[in-house]
Nucleic acid binder design. Structure first.
Lengths: 231, 231
DNA sequence: CAAATACTTTATTGATCAATTGAATAACCA
DNA sequence: TGGTTATTCAATTGATCAATAAAGTATTTG
């Protein structure tokens, strides 16, 4: 049997390794990066742009995420594409979000403020969308940036990035009910889209959660730029 | 609708809050405390003792855990009893462990070393113990310290802390199969108990996981010092 | 009631570590 | 070669950690 102090030594190293993961999760900037990478792979530059950081700083943070094995990198020529190394990374981030919402009153208050003018009537859970999809009585609109749509989306959805929404309204059938969705619980893209659509007279619902949550529940997804919804 | 920069401000504060949780998880010492508190509530002094830290240092770490709302404190006179504020805290720690085992080769190697002389033949999953319990053909022995047993244990188990095991062997029926368990995947208490028991000629199996994992799966638990196993 | 005791928290210090920026470097491509 | 993308480096500032010493707080004792 292993010596007592050798065992202690190994355990210390084990906890140090786990703490590396914790440390990687212990920065608001890095959590923001993880949240973005939950949508799709990203280049350093795009990540920097989306998160309002300098490229150098983004690269540094990605380095610590890589050291903790939370992200992988793939290089194409001069461009580096980062992605989460495992679906479990998103799930851990989701777990931390849930934990925060459960235990930290501050967080509940902040989300309340973020969505102060959201009409909670229009929110629907995944289950409801699934039955609507069976009845084919609905247009699902993904309002995230196109690269995120291409990396994966709810099966049957079409991509109309929020920025293009005003000019692409004609593509949306006014007779069907519209369901919009975006990145997840702290993204306001879908709220803005819903507001725009409602002002134009559409009948709009909004998914409670975003694509990564859909994916992690094993619900049907599509990828690429399929224009014809899978039946 | 909320102004663009006000939204940015709120989001930053949200991520800062989540990062607080991450930071709290980003220290080997604090993870060790969380692991202990997953078993039962503990006083500062006992935690310091179990984790080989000074009381002052332990108190500091508990303070940051409390700031992140991961632990709660209850005072009885001069004594402070700490506990996890929610089962989700343990589950998050469990998630990080799983993530580490999945992504970090170092961790796999370290656990391999920690259990180098474990006979994996004797390990059984929860499901198997459940069927054995139905057949009533088994003695389940909890070898954790007694306070942890009292705070919660597998229903039907009896408490024989590892330290007392040699002197309490007569209490264990030699005709039944014995199943030992302890704190979880990185605890060696059950391994040591199994070794002692096997040397004395008992037929021993060992649970793959510990009590917190049993509890979080909603399996039947008991608490206090019940001497007669619930039927 | 004051003094002593037991348990816990806070303050201080010095050392180490982390975050950000801007400049420099490296790698690739056209 | 010049331009683009990413990483590294150096430097500043701020945060964190562990250890010791000091201070609080409730309980018990003389």
């Amino acid at each position: 049997m292993m010596a007592q102090d050798e065992e202690q030594e190994v355990k210390t190293q084990l906890y140090d390794q786990f703490a590396l993961i914790g440390k990687a999760l212990g920065s608001a900037r890095r959590l923001e990066l993880i949240d973005l990478l939950s949508q799709s792979e990203y280049t350093v530059e795009k990540l920097a742009e989306e998160s309002n950081m300098s490229v150098a700083n983004t690269s540094q943070h990605l380095k610590t995420l890589r050291a903790a094995r939370l992200v992988d990198v793939r290089r194409e020529g001069v461009v580096a594409y980062y992605r989460l190394s495992d679906e479990a990374v998103f799930q851990t981030w989701q777990m931390i979000r849930d934990l925060g919402e459960a235990c930290i009153a501050e967080i509940e208050w902040l989300t309340g403020r973020l969505f102060q003018d959201r009409d909670h009537q229009r929110l629907i859970p995944f289950a409801e969308l699934l039955t609507m999809l069976e009845e084919a009585s609905v247009s699902v609109v993904d309002v995230r940036p196109q690269r995120e749509f291409e990396a994966g989306h709810i099966q049957g959805a079409c991509s109309i990035p929020l920025k293009e929404l005003p000019s692409r309204l004609p593509e949306i059938d006014k007779d069907k009910e519209v369901v919009v969705y975006c990145r997840g619980p702290y993204s306001t893209l879908a709220d803005k889209a819903a507001k725009t659509l409602m002002a134009k007279g559409y009948s709009v619902r909004q998914l409670e959660q975003g694509f990564p949550e859909w994916r992690t529940q094993g619900l049907p997804i599509g990828s690429g730029l399929e224009l014809i919804p899978t039946s």
